[in-house]
Nucleic acid binder design. Structure first.
Lengths: 149, 149
DNA sequence: GTTGAAACAGAAGTGCT
DNA sequence: AGCACTTCTGTTTCAAC
């Protein structure tokens, strides 16, 4: 599936992950390719859904979220938490995973009371285990093609 | 800190999270404001670091990553895993959290052998607990200002 | 793949209410 | 704060190579 992604494409993807607003001409300067060539490659990568979207990265603290938490949810007999998750604005990531915990989610809360309310609501669907984020070492690190080793 | 973020700003942030490439004029159309007014607000939000960056969202599968895993790491007497995490391209998120597990990370791997290698490397720093992602319900949901309740 | 030109869209600056 | 208008930058599309 990535057979057609060469070194140029990799560099383009890296630059666009660092800054989606970089101009095609500037990319061309950095990878020694002309601006139309860069534009065409980006168009291809977008069409192939390698580039899914361009998104603004918003600082949660600036919006009043003082707490980030990782909550693991062990559902009781597959209760339908999916709809709740989709409609809860504080839950920004949610994955179902293998193992004891059916789901892992990343949650934003303005304070501990707010977090408490979310946990209480999630407890309807199963038992939860909450870990409050103390430091963020990396978040959304730009992804690269797997090394061929 | 979010005292100056009004309804217009909220809508602007929502639209930019959905699509960072939407034009200021189009935003203006949707919130009934002129293009310069929108541009000025965005400039303010960028300067205040409410908008941190604009990033391309890349599809990991398209780059050859078939597996996403959540790995929890219980470090032995605070071993310095931070540097390893920073330099390991497969680890795209890493948080230190409260509780038993010192760290939680999101990891990409091309296959189970690849995942195995990463886990082995992390085991140098402590004991790991790995959960493979089966389904992604939401990832990077656009964030909104906390409801005033 | 390249350069160069033309057409178009979007962002930024200016002046004014 | 806001808008209308102008200018400038960047993207797109085309030609020809």
């Amino acid at each position: 599936m990535n057979s057609k992604i060469d070194q140029f494409d990799q560099k383009i993807l890296q630059l666009l992950q660092q800054d989606a607003r970089i101009s095609h001409a500037e990319i061309g300067r950095q990878i020694h390719l002309s601006q139309p060539a860069v534009s065409e490659r980006i168009k291809r990568l977008e069409a192939a859904q390698v580039i899914r979207a361009y998104r603004a990265d918003i600082n949660p603290k600036a919006l009043g979220y003082q707490i980030t938490a990782m909550i693991r949810l062990s559902t009781r007999q597959g209760r339908p938490y999916a709809q709740y998750v989709a409609n809860c604005p504080e839950i920004i990531d949610c994955y179902t995973v293998t193992g004891e915990d059916g789901a892992v989610m990343r949650v934003l809360a303005s304070d501990v009371e707010h977090l408490q309310r979310i946990i209480n609501e999630l407890n309807v669907f199963g038992s939860t285990s909450t870990a409050i984020v103390l430091t963020t070492h990396v978040a959304g690190k730009p992804i690269t093609v797997p090394a061929i080793d």
